[in-house]
Amino acid sequence: MEILWEYREQLWRGLIVTVTITAAAAVLTMAIALLLGGLASARARWIARPARVLIEVFRGIPALAQLFWLFFVLPAFGIRLSPFFCGVVGLSLCFGAYGGEIVRGAVAAFGKGQREAAIALNFPRWRFVLTVMAPQLVVTLTPMFGNLLIELLKASSLVSLITLSDLTFQAKSIMRIQLNSTEVLIFLVVAYFLLARVISLGTLRLERLAGGTWRGRG
């Protein structure tokens, strides 16, 4: 515990960076996922196909490669971005593509009978999407997005490789100084576990809330 206490401020700064990166990337990831997933589910092929191509491209490239490309390659073309911006965008593009495929799959699996019933009742498409489809998709997608955000949190440790002083970066810095790194590694594991637990509990709470709201409407 002496090492942790001695380097408490350094570890705390790293924790703040990790939380900030994860939160910012989570917001952008959700936006990209909904956008790409919605476009990929469009009836018009000229809209759906480009969205599906983007999903496959960014889903197929490792997050680390995307971070390196933004941070190390773009400057060669005269485009210099801050490490923080590279971290947020690089993670968001990768996990946003995964989320987009999740959304596309959920929309494709939506009950065909409900669609046909809406058409029979002469429901406007926008009303069907907002009042019938969207609430059910929220219930379906919430646990999936919760898992995605936990994976995003774990992948946030990659930003330490583009000079961001996140929790992993600070831990590695301390271990280079101290011969005994056991305490730091234990702290690192516990910290990421607790952060993931917060996301998991928040997702579970949101899932129950969304489910209760939908059942209330039904």
Rank of each mutant, 00 (worst) to 15 (best):
M1R: 10
M1P: 11
I3R: 09
L4V: 05
Y7H: 12
R8A: 14
T18Q: 05
T18P: 05
T20I: 04
I21E: 03
T22Y: 08
A26H: 01
A26C: 06
V27Y: 10
V27D: 08
L28R: 04
I32P: 01
A42H: 14
W46G: 01
L54D: 06
E56P: 00
F58N: 03
P62E: 11
A63F: 06
A63Q: 07
F68K: 00
W69L: 15
L70R: 02
F71Y: 15
F72S: 06
V73L: 14
F77K: 02
F77W: 14
R80F: 11
P83E: 07
F84N: 00
C86Q: 03
V89E: 07
V89P: 02
G90R: 00
C94N: 14
C94I: 00
F95H: 10
G96E: 04
G96V: 04
A97G: 06
I102E: 09
V103D: 05
A106Y: 06
A106T: 08
A109C: 06
Q114E: 13
A117C: 07
L121I: 00
L121C: 11
W126T: 08
W126N: 11
F128P: 01
T131K: 14
M133F: 09
M133E: 15
A134Q: 11
P135A: 10
L137H: 07
V138Y: 10
V139P: 10
T140G: 03
T140M: 11
G146L: 05
L149Q: 03
K154N: 13
A155D: 11
S156H: 06
S156N: 06
L161A: 13
L164C: 04
S165R: 12
D166L: 02
D166S: 01
D166Y: 01
T168R: 05
A171R: 01
K172Y: 15
S173E: 14
S173F: 13
R176W: 13
L179P: 00
L179M: 12
N180W: 09
E183A: 15
L185H: 11
L185P: 01
L185F: 15
I186D: 12
I186H: 12
F187Y: 15
A191H: 10
A191F: 13
L195N: 04
V198G: 09
V198Q: 10
G202I: 02
L204R: 15
L206C: 11
E207F: 07
R208C: 07
L209A: 15
T213L: 15
T213Q: 14
G216N: 13
